[in-house]
Simulated scan of single mutants.
Amino acid sequence: MKQTARLLHASSFGAAAGAYAEHRPDYAPAAVRWALEPAPGPRVLDLGAGTGKLTGTLVALGADVIAVERDPAMLTELRRTLPAVRALSGSAEAIPLPDASVDAVLAGNALHWFDMAVAGPEIARVLAPGGILAGLWNVLDDRVDWVAGLERVSGSAGIGPRDTFSNWRAATVGLHLPDAGLVAEFGSPEQVEFPHGQRRTADSLVATIATRAGVLVMPEQEREATLSRIRAFLASRPETASGEFTLPMLTGVLRVRQR
């Protein structure tokens, strides 16, 4: 994605902060535990924290969490939901923390929005020796037939390569290493998935897809056409046509350790 398009997509979420907080899933606790397993201590930075979906899981696991988010509307939602968490305005490219102040930096569905040529050295700066950088993504299990059909109907704007089990590893494995300079900072990446099925209705699943950046930046007519097409597909499938169902999902983790 070109820089201008990336910035447009990355800045789209604030307008839908309330819907994002209501409909986006949290993260599998087992995935978060695995991400933090080698961290040298309990201090965790949730970077690009959004409305606090990952922050809440970190708090529940007993981590000492600081959340950093650049979008004011998203940050407001986070502070409303998790008032006890220290939540700061800032970005991956300008982290408002001192050197070596955290043991792990985690990013939930956010690492791909960072300009890692700038953010990589910043992350390395705030990490204590041996610290962990981990990106987490909630991905659809497109090995399930109807989920693969949903992907086709939604198009890449609704469900992109990072959003499916089949593609997320290839789409994310190099995100922490944009240039040779960072190779010396971090070790080899590890990637693992953890089951994280979500209870949904057709309406709530459509509302979730509507909070994706590719949909948020669509012209209104195109967005409504896309969401209508998804509703029609869900109404046509016996798995999703009536009542609640389990959306097959996993939380994928990309983990690297600072040398």
Rank of each mutant, 00 (worst) to 15 (best):
W113Q: 00
E220D: 14
F13Y: 13
R223V: 00
S188N: 05
L106Q: 11
L61M: 10
G174W: 10
E69K: 07
N167A: 13
T57H: 01
T246H: 06
R80N: 07
F165H: 04
S242D: 06
G252Q: 15
E222Q: 05
A104D: 05
N138Q: 15
A10V: 03
R229L: 05
D26I: 03
L7S: 13
L136K: 11
A124W: 00
W34Y: 15
W113M: 02
R86L: 01
W137R: 15
E77R: 11
V217P: 11
L45G: 11
G214Y: 08
D115P: 00
L58K: 12
T251H: 13
E151P: 06
D145E: 13
V192G: 01
P40W: 08
A170S: 02
L136T: 13
V192C: 09
V144Y: 01
A49T: 02
V118W: 12
A19Q: 12
D142L: 12
T4F: 14
V206Y: 03
L127W: 05
V256A: 07
G14I: 05
P161H: 05
L177W: 07
G90Q: 06
R86E: 09
R43W: 06
F233H: 06
L8H: 14
E224S: 03
L61G: 08
A232S: 05
F186D: 08
E151M: 12
S156D: 06
F165T: 07
V118K: 00
G62F: 14
Q198K: 09
P72A: 08
T164Q: 11
L8F: 06
S236G: 12
R257A: 14
R125F: 02
L227E: 11
P29I: 13
L216H: 14
M74S: 07
L136P: 08
A235I: 11
R6A: 02
G174C: 07
L47S: 01
P25W: 11
A87Q: 01
V173P: 00
A19F: 11
G131E: 02
R212E: 07
A110R: 04
E37F: 15
A241W: 08
L106P: 07
G214E: 05
G214N: 05
I209F: 07
N167F: 08
P96K: 04
N167I: 08
A94R: 10
R255W: 09
R86A: 05
P129M: 04
H112L: 06
D26T: 09
G197W: 14
A235K: 05
D71G: 12
T4A: 14
Y20N: 01
V206C: 08
V144G: 09
L250Q: 15
